[in-house]
Nucleic acid binder design. Structure first.
Length: 770
DNA sequence: GGTGTCGCTGTTTTT
DNA sequence: CAGCGACACC
C-alpha cells in the first residue's frame, strides 16, 4: 500500500497530522467516533489509510484505551500490515494493546480462554481440511457408508455451508428429504460427535462456538462487550452469517456500544461460495438504524484507463448498486489483451514482457504480479520464470504445513496439547514405525468403542486390551511414556518424580527440536531414501525456526512473559490458521504469483492476468448460475483494480487441462470491455506449437491434430438420438442440444448415471453410433 | 512391517 | 495428471 495520496487540502485554522492529508469523506470517516459507521470504499480509495488513521484518532485524540479497540481483518497478512501501519502512528506500547487479527484467530483465542464452559480444553485442536477429511472418513466408517458414494470433500462442503448459516445437525436433519441429504445429515451429526470426542473444532466451528459463547454465557458475553468498545471490520462484504452474529452480539444489542465501523465494497464480494453474505453490507443500515454511511469513491491507485475498463466491466452486473469510481491519475497506457497459442506460449510471453518492464522501464520484480483463477495454472508459469531466472514468490502459505513431515511433527505437538485428538494420534502412533501395527491399533479402537473409553485411556493402559500381544503392549507403553514425559515437561501433566518440574520451562524451540529427536522423526526422515536432497530435513529445520520466530514475536508483543503452554497452544493455533497470502513478503524483490482470490486488498504497479478464458474465468462450475457469474465478474474486477499502471490480460487458443488439450474460448467478459482502452494483439500464429517437440516426438503431431479436429466436430453435429460414451458416466443417448451463449450443451440420458447436462466443450464425449 | 505398483477418482476459489 | 487406497511382494 502506498501512502502517497493526492490530497484535496482543506484550510483549517489548526492542522492535525492525522487528518491533514485526507479528503473530506476520508476525514469524516476518521473522525466519526460514536455509533455505527459504514464506509463504502471503492477499490483503491485509501481504505486502509482511513482505518489506520481512525484507530490512531480514537486513541490519540479521543483518548480511548487501546485495549478497547479491535480491528478484524480477513488474513493474517492484512492484520500484520495494519498493525505495522498503526504502530507508526502511536507508541509501540499502545499499538501492542490493540486487538488486530482475523475473525478466526480472535475466536480461537477467546475460545481458548473460555474453553471449559464450551465443553473443550484450552489445548483443543483446530482441524484443517485434511484433518476434517479424516474425521469425515471415520464418521462414514462408523455409519457403514462408503467414501465412494459420499466423497468426504463433497460432504464437507455441504456441512460447511450449513454451518455458515448456523444450521446444526439436528436442524439439517429436519430439512433433509432425499436419501443423499438424509445420509449427509447422519454424517454431519456423527462428524460433530467425532470432533467433540477429539476435543477439536474445524474452521467453521471456531465461529459457531464464539456465537454460542456470546449467546449462552451471559457473563462472558457482557465482559467481551465491555472490553471491545470499538470494533472495526474490514472486507465486510465477505462476512458470513456467523461472523455477522459475532459482530452484532458484540456491538449491536441494547447493552452494546453500537460503536462498529465496517468497511467494504459490494463490488468486491468474492466469497459467496464460502457462505459470505453480501446482504450484511447492503443491509447494514437496517441492522444498525443509527448508522452513518460514508462513500469513498476517489481512486488513488490506478490510471484512468484501467479504472475505465474495470468500471465498464462491473457495470454489467445487474444486481448491483451503481457507484462512481473516479480518479485524478494519468490516462495511462492501454490495457493489453493478448492471445497466445497455448499455456506455454502464454507463460513465455508473460516472462518476456515482465523482463522487458524490468530491464527497459526499470520496474522492480517486486512491483509485478501474475494472477490466475485456479492454482493449477501456476505450474507452467513457475517453470517459465525459473527457466528465465526471474525471482518469484508464490502465495501458497498453507503448502508448507501440508507436507508430510510437517504434518507429522504438528501431530505430535497436538497430541501433547490435546491427548484426545485421535486424528493426530492415528497419524503418528506408528510413525516412525515403533512396533504398533495396524492390527493393534484396530484392536485398541475396538476396545475403546466396546468399553466406552477414549483411545487416550487405552494408550495409557494397553495391558487391559486382551487382543494385544506382549510385544504390542510394550511398544504402546513406550510410546505413552515418551508422550507423557513431554507433557510433564510442557506443564500439561503432573510429574511423578519431582513436584517442581514445571519451574524450568523449556523454550518452544528447544522443545520442538527435542520432540523431533526423541520421536524418531528426524532420524526417520534423515534415512529417507526418497529424499536425496534432504528437503524434508530442511523443512523440519524450518519448522524449528518458525517455532522460535513465533516465540520471539509473542514475547515481544505481550506485556507479561507467556508460559510454555501458552506458547505451545498459541503456536499450534497460528499454524492452523495460516492463509495463502501470509507467505507473501513485500520486500522479497520477487514477482508475486497468486490466485485472484488471494489478490484482494493488494496492489501492484504491473499485473498480468493469465487464462482469461471461459471455463476458467468465469469458472466452469459457475456457468449455470447467474449469481455465480456475477461473482466471477467481480473477481475479474478485483483482479483488474489491483493494477496501478500496467494491466495485461492473456488468453490462449488451446489449453491442456487434466492431460487433455482442448480449444480455449476467450472469456465472455472480454466482450464487455471498452475497446477504446484495450489494445488487442493476436500472437497465437507467431508461435510454433510443434517447436516444443523433439524430432523423435514428431509423430505426436498427427494424433494431436486429429484430436483437436474431433473435438470441434462434436460441437457441430451431435443431434438428439445420438448414442455417446462418457469416460465416467458410460453409455447414453442425447436427448437435447442447445446453445447457451458461446456454449453448446447437450442433455444426455445415461444408462446408469441418469440424465446429465453436459457442456460439449469440456465433457469428453465420444460418439458411439451414427 | 515396510515398500512398490496398480488402478481408480476427482479435479475452484480458502479461514 | 495428480493423489489416494488396496493389494501384493520383499
Amino acid at each position: 500500500m502506498t501512502d502517497a495520496i493526492t490530497t484535496t487540502r482543506r484550510s483549517t485554522a489548526e492542522t492535525d497530522p492525522l487528518l491533514d492529508d485526507l479528503t473530506t469523506p476520508q476525514r469524516d470517516a476518521v473522525t466519526h467516533v460514536e455509533g455505527p459507521l459504514l464506509v463504502l470504499a471503492g477499490a483503491g480509495s485509501g481504505k486502509t489509510r482511513v482505518i489506520t488513521r481512525r484507530i490512531a484518532h480514537l486513541i490519540l485524540r479521543v483518548g480511548i484505551a487501546p485495549w478497547q479497540v479491535a480491528a478484524i481483518t480477513f488474513t493474517n497478512k492484512a492484520a500484520g500490515e495494519m498493525r505495522d501501519r498503526v504502530t507508526q502512528l502511536m507508541s509501540e506500547r499502545q499499538a501492542r494493546a490493540l486487538t488486530v487479527c482475523t475473525y478466526h484467530s480472535l475466536c480461537a483465542r477467546i475460545i481458548r480462554a473460555h474453553a471449559e464452559p464450551l465443553g473443550l480444553t484450552p489445548g483443543y485442536s483446530i482441524y484443517d481440511t485434511s484433518d476434517q477429511k479424516a474425521a469425515v472418513k471415520s464418521a462414514l466408517k462408523s455409519l457403514d457408508l462408503s467414501a465412494g458414494n459420499f466423497p468426504p470433500a463433497t460432504v464437507l462442503a455441504t456441512i460447511s455451508n450449513a454451518k455458515n448459516e448456523l444450521i446444526d445437525a439436528d436442524e439439517f436433519t429436519k430439512t433433509a428429504f432425499d436419501f443423499y441429504s438424509k445420509s449427509v445429515a447422519r454424517v454431519y451429526a456423527k462428524y460433530q460427535s467425532v470432533l467433540k470426542k477429539n476435543n477439536a473444532l474445524d474452521f467453521d466451528d471456531l465461529l459457531i462456538k464464539m456465537v454460542e459463547l456470546l449467546r449462552d454465557h451471559t457473563e462472558v458475553a457482557a465482559a467481551l462487550r465491555d472490553r471491545y468498545q470499538y470494533v472495526l471490520i474490514d472486507e465486510y462484504q465477505d462476512t458470513n452469517h456467523a461472523q455477522f452474529m459475532i459482530a452484532h452480539a458484540l456491538t449491536g444489542g441494547p447493552d452494546s456500544s453500537q460503536n462498529i465501523c465496517v468497511t467494504g465494497d459490494p463490488d468486491q464480494s468474492i466469497y459467496a461460495w464460502r457462505g459470505a453474505n453480501i446482504r450484511n453490507i447492503l443491509e447494514f443500515e437496517s441492522h444498525y438504524p443509527a448508522a452513518r454511511t460514508i462513500r469513498l469513491e476517489q481512486n488513488y491507485r490506478s490510471t484512468k484507463r484501467i479504472l475505465a475498463v474495470a468500471d465498464t466491466l462491473i457495470k454489467h452486473n445487474r444486481k448491483r448498486r451503481d457507484k462512481d469510481l473516479w480518479t485524478q491519475n494519468d490516462q495511462g497506457d492501454h490495457v493489453a489483451l493478448v492471445k497466445c497459442y497455448n499455456e506455454r506460449h502464454e507463460a513465455q510471453w508473460l516472462v518476456d514482457r515482465l523482463t522487458e518492464l524490468n530491464q527497459q522501464e526499470d520496474l522492480a520484480w517486486g512491483a509485478m504480479a501474475v494472477f490466475y483463477r485456479v492454482n493449477s495454472l501456476s505450474r507452467v508459469i513457475e517453470d517459465a520464470l525459473r527457466e528465465a531466472r526471474v525471482p518469484y514468490q508464490i502465495a501458497r502459505g498453507t503448502a508448507f504445513y501440508e507436507r508430510q513431515e510437517i504434518k507429522d511433527s504438528i501431530a505430535f505437538l497436538r497430541i501433547i496439547a490435546n491427548p484426545n485428538d485421535e486424528v493426530s494420534l492415528a497419524r503418528i502412533i506408528n510413525t516412525p514405525a515403533r512396533g504398533i501395527s495396524d492390527r493393534s491399533v484396530k484392536a485398541m479402537q475396538a476396545y475403546a468403542l466396546a468399553h466406552d473409553v477414549t483411545m487416550a485411556a487405552v494408550v495409557a493402559q494397553p495391558a487391559q486390551v486382551p487382543a494385544l500381544n506382549t510385544r504390542a503392549v510394550n511398544s504402546i507403553e513406550r510410546f505413552h511414556k515418551m508422550v507423557n514425559a513431554w507433557r510433564v515437561q510442557a506443564g500439561l501433566a503432573p510429574s511423578s518424580v519431582c513436584a517442581d518440574a514445571g519451574e524450568h520451562e523449556p523454550t518452544l524451540r528447544f522443545f520442538v527440536q527435542q520432540m523431533l529427536r526423541e520421536s524418531g522423526l528426524e532420524q526417520y526422515y534423515r534415512k529417507d531414501t526418497a529424499d536425496p536432497g534432504e528437503e524434508r530435513i530442511m523443512n523440519l529445520g524450518e519448522l524449528v525456526s518458525s517455532a522460535q520466530q513465533f516465540e520471539d514475536e509473542l514475547e515481544r508483543e505481550t506485556q507479561e512473559m507467556p508460559t510454555f503452554t501458552e506458547k505451545l497452544m498459541g503456536y499450534l493455533e497460528q499454524v492452523s490458521l495460516v492463509s495463502d497470502v501470509d507467505a507473501i513478503d513485500d520486500n522479497q524483490g520477487a514477482v508475486t504469483l497468486m490466485t485472484l482470490h488471494a489478490a484482494k486488498g493488494l496492489e501492484f504497479p504491473a499485473i498480468v492476468m493469465a487464462g482469461v478464458e471461459d471455463g476458467l474465468l468465469p469458472h466452469a462450475r459457475s456457468q449455470d448460475d447467474d449469481d455465480a457469474i456475477e461473482e466471477e465478474r467481480r473477481l475479474f474486477f478485483v483482479g483488474m483494480t489491483r493494477a496501478m499502471r500496467n494491466l495485461m490480460l492473456t488468453f490462449t487458443r488451446e489449453r491442456t487441462v487434466f492431460g487433455q488439450t482442448l480449444p480455449a474460448i476467450p472469456s465472455r467478459f472480454l466482450r464487455e470491455l471498452p475497446t477504446e482502452h484495450v489494445d488487442t494483439r493476436d500472437l497465437s500464429d507467431a508461435f510454433d506449437p510443434y517447436g516444443e517437440f523433439d524430432e523423435e516426438d514428431n509423430d505426436l503431431m498427427t494424433p494431436r491434430a486429429a484430436r483437436r479436429a474431433d473435438a470441434l466436430r462434436q460441437v457441430d453435429e451431435i443431434p438428439p438420438g445420438t448414442m455417446v460414451r462418457h469416460p465416467s458416466f458410460g453409455l447414453g443417448r442425447v436427448i437435447a442440444v442447445n446453445n447457451v451463449g458461446s456454449q453448446t450443451r447437450a442433455r444426455v440420458e445415461f444408462n446408469t448415471a441418469g440424465v446429465k447436462t453436459l457442456v460439449l466443450q469440456y465433457a469428453r464425449l465420444e460418439r458411439v453410433s451414427p
